[in-house]
Nucleic acid binder design. Structure first.
Lengths: 345, 345
DNA sequence: GTGAAAGCGCTAACAT
DNA sequence: ATGTTAGCGCTTTCAC
């Protein structure tokens, strides 16, 4: 009895292909993966026979076995907190384009909240991926990012506070940019400035950088924070619309809004316009993200964000770190800026 | 010399833990993964020793090895075409909640265009995941979905035409619902109805169901299709705004718009309002998706989509198929409907 | 140019 | 209650 008559498997394996082509499993591997490092090719005749057998059997290589052996998965991840946004999708798109050249696939790992991070990060911890980019403001404890990096996982994180130790970090200088945005409103004479926060930011103890920037700008200018002006809603458009609508109907409505997302800022503008208010005369609005969308609102949205969206530096940093995981940490600078736009038309 | 003095590895492996705890590698496995099927537990004392060793060494199990052995990865994927949308994010969120109970992680596989599908689907073909949900209108050739299912991959696909053979399909009856939406506009007396399409739909030869529905509704009512009224822009808000703005400035502007997404429909409404037109009097707009956001626009958006967003049936179908991949294909019905909303307030 | 064989790190029978 | 052992399916020396 030959080896071939083992218990029937659900999917064909390399050995099945080898037997069908009348070669060894090693040869099949050479044909499919190329003989790395060696110049010795497989003869054209065998190559064809193997390829035919592959097609006939519908063979697909087994990823687990391959990556166990090769110590790499050829998959990279983008870790982010939903909801998605155009900035993130551009990052993923560019990573994708770059990844195909390396024969690498891109997946995303959405993490909705910190309490869920621990379980989901298994995908990174257990080396399911060769490396990852961590998008700004993920729902992950910084300590977990450090732990992943310390574990040797190639990582590039958009983060302003993490030390660039065993990972690369991209500095956005979010707090400074956000502070300048709120100060800008104050310079325009605004005193009652509302803050439209991401839902999870208000839930966290330490609060996030954007809220910190907001508070700092107010206190630096001797303005007392009115808790009634700090509301959630930056995550979802309908929430933003409803929250702003409620604010504007209040007894002492704000004259300006600083929104943690462009998304919400735009809905704030709509809520104001639907309430019969002029923007920016009756209500000034500043968003965060510098998305294309902000350019087509009426009036165009003043916002805070990265001036450009060329992620090649970031992506290259990831590839380099994957190729040399022990490389010392690097710090990239893509500082956010205040992008003021005057009403157009 | 004991086995322990092999060449130094980058990460500790089970054997390292075993040696440190003075037990066998099998015991470590039992402690960490539980003794599946068996009732025999590990003694409390060894358990603690092993766990201590794990912590001291910072051991993380190797996913490739584990899944090679266990024939499962405990990872499921959601395949979709960017940009993301609230409906999709709700699906992912619910899948997530359900997955953690099974000790399963969720990843997403964004596929931007068909020509990129082949390479990216490696993640599914090579059994990187235990199963997948394919969101509506993915950038994948139906033949590829069939091939994946035929290969034995547990799959649940939102699709109206695929045969529920070796996969489960969720029928949305998109075309019928979209047709009824366009017919609704025609009944209101509209003759010049524009179609705001997803970018890739216009690029494809066969065109998509939404465009087909649009054409059918027009021809059924004896209205000739004006190519000038079929424009892309449904993917990105600024594009939608610009396209509608251009349409409205044309010599013979449309009186109604059928948009392939709520997202774009809402921007169509704003383009109209910004152009000084009344909605729906001067321009009627219908979207697709039945998103929450459509409720807070002024006027509220009439749309086409799933009335509810409880995905438990779909998610359960995935788990059942993963547990029994040979189960015959099932057909789920979540038909889209026309959701008419009159101007509110 | 091709094959034999030794693992990659883990789990699960089976033995003790 | 714990250890021994035989692989999972693949890649990669090394020998021919």
């Amino acid at each position: 009895m030959s080896k071939s008559s083992k218990t029937p498997r659900s999917r064909p394996i390399q050995r099945d292909v080898a037997e069908r082509a009348g070669v060894s499993s090693a040869t099949v591997s050479y044909v499919l993966s190329g003989r790395r490092g060696r110049a010795n090719p497989v003869s054209e005749e065998t190559r064809v026979r193997v390829l035919d057998a592959v097609k006939e059997l519908g063979y697909q290589s087994n990823h687990a076995a391959r990556s166990l052996r090769r110590h790499r998965t050829d998959i990279v991840a983008v870790v982010h907190r939903p909801p998605s946004n155009p900035w993130l999708e551009e990052l993923i798109e560019q990573l994708h384009r770059s990844a195909v050249e390396r024969g690498c696939s891109v997946i995303t790992v959405p993490i909705a909240s910190r309490d869920r991070a621990e379980t989901v990060l298994r995908v990174l911890r257990e080396r399911f991926v060769d490396g990852a980019i961590i998008a700004p403001d993920p729902a992950i404890d910084p300590a977990q990012v450090r732990a992943l990096a310390a574990g040797g996982l190639p990582l590039v994180a958009f983060d302003d506070t993490l030390t660039a130790r065993r990972l690369d970090v991209v500095r956005l200088a979010q707090e400074e940019a956000c502070r300048s945005a709120v100060c800008y409103l104050i310079e325009q004479g605004h005193r009652r400035i509302a803050y439209l926060a991401h839902d999870e930011e208000l839930a966290l103890d330490g609060h996030g950088v954007k809220f910190a920037a907001y508070r700092k700008a107010l206190s630096d200018n001797g303005i007392e924070l009115d808790p009634a002006l700090v509301v959630p809603g930056a995550d979802f458009r309908p929430d933003a619309y409803a929250q702003v609508q409620k604010l504007l109907r209040g007894s002492t409505p704000p004259t300006a809004i600083f929104s943690a997302s462009d998304r919400a800022a735009i809905n704030a503008i709509w809520a104001a316009r639907d309430a019969g208010l002029g923007v920016p005369d009756d209500l000034a609005v500043i968003g965060v993200g510098n998305t294309k969308e902000g350019e087509s609102v009426q009036p165009a949205l003043t916002t805070v964000g990265t001036p450009q969206t060329d992620f090649s530096q970031v992506i290259d940093a990831l590839w380099e770190r994957i190729d040399d995981p022990t490389r010392s940490g690097r710090e990239l600078l893509e500082p956010w800026r205040l992008v003021t736009r005057s009403p157009h038309d």
